[in-house]
């Protein structure tokens, strides 16, 4: 749109004494309050749009980076069935990343730019993936705990106000349930298997429990973005609410298969009707978030390497397609 056109429109509006920004804001807020979806072509406050870009893209990055710790064990999967299931699961993660990048792009940002943000450290991904997978049991722990935590979060997000994000989450939730079952099945089988298997399973739980509950982020009081996110109905439940929900579900699952949650302060609170649990090591949490986890550098390097090594392929595909267009 040329500058003259814009000037004309502004003049016209001034004449009609209508403040369009206020009108748009009102329409937007009415939609939010009425539980209607905001769609890509709708007017939205810059803050809303930026928050969504950040949240959706980080969610997408998490799915993609998450392929690495699990992908690490595909070639060592100990049975044909385990191999098929793990490969299908990791493939699903790629798919979920794609659904989310797709939803994010509707907000006016390209996947290439999102990629760049990830590489430059401007965008983050879930810290849980900065921990290494050290044994086959970790495949169980990740499926059970990490996907379990993700499910708690994602079920809640199905009701998020932004249309494409909500639809993406509904699709993802449908596919996610097999992931958690896969993980829990591995843990259950190992916990009931040989002595070494049981030890391996307990060890995996010991290493992944705290990072899993850290996935829900800082305490509500320490989370500055939660306010807006709740107001705009991007987020439907707070960090602490989701975390509590996850813990309550999972403790019983662990007890059922004879594994012990590594939290000496974990206790059922009859009055609350839920579990009390120990304090999270916030120093570890912030360290890992800020880049000082065991695998941060490795995960990004891996992603960058794949991207760089694939450049000639993407270039070729583009060149080929352009030749076809010229010939049509």
């Amino acid at each position: 749109m040329s500058e003259q056109t814009i000037d004309k429109k502004v003049d016209s509006a001034k004449k009609r004494k209508i403040n369009y920004a206020v009108l748009q804001e009102e329409i937007f807020e009415n939609k939010i309050n009425a539980e209607k979806k905001i769609e890509p072509k709708d007017w939205m406050p810059e803050g809303y749009r930026n928050h969504l870009i950040r949240q959706i893209s980080q969610h997408a990055h998490s799915e993609i980076i998450g392929m690495q710790p699990e992908g690490n064990w595909i070639t060592r999967a100990p049975s044909l069935r385990a191999k098929m299931i793990l490969l299908a699961k990791v493939q699903d993660e790629a798919g979920h990343g794609l659904y989310l990048y797709s939803a994010c792009e509707t907000l006016g940002i390209s996947r290439e730019e999102l990629n760049q943000q990830l590489h430059e450290g401007k965008a983050k991904y879930s810290s849980i993936f900065n921990y290494p997978t050290l044994s086959w049991a970790d495949m169980g722990a990740i499926g059970w705990l990490v996907d379990g935590a993700a499910i708690v979060n994602q079920v809640s997000l199905q009701k998020t106000s932004y249309g494409p994000y909500s639809r993406g989450m509904i699709k993802i939730c449908k596919e996610e349930s097999f992931h958690q079952r896969q993980g829990y099945e591995i843990m259950a089988q190992m916990a009931n298997g040989t002595k070494e298997q049981k030890e391996m399973a307990q060890d995996a739980l010991n290493r992944f429990w705290w990072p899993s509950i850290m996935m829900f982020g800082p305490h509500d009081a320490d989370s500055p973005r939660t306010g807006n996110a709740m107001k705009w109905k991007i987020k439907r439940k707070t960090n602490d609410e989701l975390r509590q929900s996850f813990i309550d579900k999972t403790v019983e699952q662990a007890e059922l298969i004879g594994l012990k949650i590594p939290d000496p302060d974990l206790k059922w609170n009859e009055e609350k009707g839920s579990y009390d649990f120990g304090e999270i090591d916030w120093e570890e949490f912030w360290n890992v978030v800020n880049g000082n986890g065991p695998c941060n550098e490795q995960r990004l390097d891996h992603h960058k390497k794949a991207h760089n090594e694939g450049e000639w392929v993407r270039d070729a595909a583009r060149a080929y397609s352009q030749k076809q267009t010229t010939n049509e």
């Binding site: 814009i6 502004v10 369009y20 006016g108 390209s110 730019e113």
Partner: peptide, 14 residues
């Protein structure tokens, strides 16, 4: 909408 340069573009793909 003032600042919508092309009304018929579906998404704001840059």
């Amino acid at each position: 909408s003032f600042f919508d340069p092309s009304n018929d573009k579906v998404y704001r793909h840059p």
